[in-house]
């Protein structure tokens, strides 16, 4: 019976979280857009024929008619050079962009969060050294590192993602560290000590549950920025083989036709921007949900 009440309490809590999120209209819009991207990516992965797409991994050029065509019933979003249908290419590209962005954020965030939390928890000399290393890595511009990695390992989407993950973790290390430090200062940590709770248990019971949720929010916010940076790198020529459906690369294909065929530039770019925006709106809504004080 006791257990049931506890279950009921948890269920109440979930309902409250959902209603807090739903109250934020723009967050709901963000969520829907992100879901649409996600569903598209899943379809491309598992059953592209559902959308009538035969080759989800490559762009299909049409050299008979390479010049970009405006939107029409055959090509709903028009085509880009060399005769590539934009709509299907964008649908394919979303999977690639999403996957690599996830990879970058997941690697960067987990490495960074672990380093930041451990550093703050250990404090002292260890913290000092780790943070100096973080500062050094942080000061490397991602473009330079991507160039260097591309030069040494060769230009590819994987190498680009690795370069981005390397430049991204210090951000999380700093964020996680400052979150941990401020959580350590709360009296409830001292109260736990007074209650006889050991150091490690305090870490897992009190510090992590307070530190991780804001990091998850940061991840959701960063997903958008990473996708923008990722496609920017592709746009400026970090993809060697010219046949990969990637939003930044697709945008670059339209570059030479900006005056005669603006859609070839606008549409792929728009899909990047919309995702970044949606993810931001979603993150804002999640922030409301995880902050116990904003639940009123």
């Amino acid at each position: 019976m006791q257990q049931e009440t506890a279950e009921a309490g948890r269920w109440e809590n979930l309902k409250l979280s959902i209603s807090v999120f739903m109250a934020n209209k723009s967050a709901v819009v963000g969520l829907i857009i992100v879901l649409v991207y996600l569903i598209d990516a899943l379809i491309m992965q598992f059953d592209p024929m559902l959308l009538g797409i035969h080759h989800p991994d490559v762009l299909v050029p049409n050299f008979l008619n390479p010049v970009p065509l405006p939107p029409s019933p055959q090509h709903i979003l028009g085509t880009t050079y060399p005769g590539i249908d934009l709509l299907t290419s964008i649908l394919k590209a979303i999977r690639i962009d999403l996957a690599y962005s996830f990879f970058v954020v997941a690697v960067g965030a987990s490495v960074g969060a672990v380093i930041g939390i451990v550093s703050a928890w250990a404090s002292g000399m260890f913290d000092e050294v780790i943070m100096r290393i973080t500062d050094i890595v942080f000061s490397i511009p991602y473009l330079i590192l991507a160039l260097a990695v591309g030069f040494i390992l060769g230009r590819s989407l994987w190498h680009m993602s690795i370069a981005l993950a390397i430049t991204w973790w210090p951000l999380y290390a700093r964020y996680a560290r400052s979150q941990t430090l401020s959580t350590k200062e709360y009296t409830f940590i001292e109260a736990a000590k007074a209650a006889g709770v050991g150091r490690t248990t305090i870490m897992f019971r009190h510090i992590l549950p307070n530190v991780l949720p804001p990091i998850f929010i940061q991840i959701s916010l960063d997903l958008g920025s990473i996708m923008v940076i990722f496609s920017t790198l592709a746009f400026i020529g970090f993809i060697p083989s010219a046949n990969i459906p990637e939003l930044g690369y697709l945008t670059s294909l339209g570059l030479n036709f900006v005056q005669t065929a603006p859609w070839a530039l606008i549409f792929p770019g728009l899909f990047i921007t919309i995702f970044a925006l949606a993810v931001n709106l979603l993150g804002d809504g999640l922030r409301d949900v995880i902050d116990p004080r904003r639940r009123g």
Binding site: Y186, T187, F188, E190, A191, A192, A194, R205, H206, P209, N210, P292, R293
Partner: peptide
């Protein structure tokens, strides 16, 4: 022990 500020002495996630 009972602390001064009951807003920070109770873990908000518990």
């Amino acid at each position: 022990m009972v602390f001064q500020d009951p807003y920070s002495s109770l873990d908000p996630r518990m």
